[in-house]
Design a protein around this nucleic acid. Sequence first.
DNA 1: GCTCCCCTATGTAAGACACTTATACTCGGA
DNA 2: TCCGAGTATAAGTGTCTTACATAGGGGAGC
Lengths: 146, 146
Amino acid sequence: MRVDRQPRCRCRVGPGRFEVRARIERFAEPAVLLLLAEGPSHGYRLADHLEELLGEGRVDFGNLYRLLRALEEEGLVASRWSEEAPGPQKRVYELTGEGAALLDAWAASLGARRERIVDLLARYEALEEALADVTSELADLGAARP
Amino acid sequence: MRVDRQPRCRCRVGPGRFEVRARIERFAEPAVLLLLAEGPSHGYRLADHLEELLGEGRVDFGNLYRLLRALEEEGLVASRWSEEAPGPQKRVYELTGEGAALLDAWAASLGARRERIVDLLARYEALEEALADVTSELADLGAARP
DNA sequence: GCTCCCCTATGTAAGACACTTATACTCGGA
DNA sequence: TCCGAGTATAAGTGTCTTACATAGGGGAGC
């Protein structure tokens, strides 16, 4: 499937202009596990819901199916063919106990990672404010003696 | 330098037990840019401060120096040899205007990523609560007719 | 035919791990 | 006092794995 091209991580789009994508490695995994924890589903439907959960363009089906198969091999999800008569055959996936445990671990790690991002952004914003203060002070000085 | 071994992303450490590390791709880059925005520094010292900012074990020096050189090639940082007399030679880096612009882009993207994590964790916690409710209801039923 | 769904194959970038080179200080013993 | 071993600082290079992007193939239903 053709997907809007996105930079893997970051790229320059002009002088002083950058496009950045702060990707979390394997972020699709906890997202899929969460969706399956909310209820069994099949590949295509998962892709739809993943889109909103990941907040990026369409997910790549190739990667999604490979992920699902890998998860099944590890016993983290289980699958069966759907009995629904009309339409193409669907393989329906559901979460196993092991999969739920992995989701728990992911949630803990993502919580920690969120804290690191919050810290970094706080320091970044503090810097911006300090810079704004200096700039306005300089402007005041300039106004005082023209 | 030897570093405590960490799983790249996740690994099973027992039945139903997992170690997960939610890594952000190239997270070292915005961290280095932020540190240099706070003031010029050199490789080895950056490594010390990165540790606390990244919240992981020691950073890999090899990768750090490679990153710094790559950033310099792109004009995002500039370097010079330090004049300090004693001790080994130090290459001191400072941020350029382009580098500051890239840091801005990173901050925006990290803010968006934080939102995605918050969303996912909120849904995860909602699920946990629902599960707890069902469990306690079942326990009540069991207590009602023993 | 076309689109929906599932699966396979392959290339690549980030980074984990391992190793090298060089300077300077510190402490112990000859 | 000089000599060397050991340690801390500093800046690299080499190589392999892993996670993922990307592209292609094929069957079922409209």
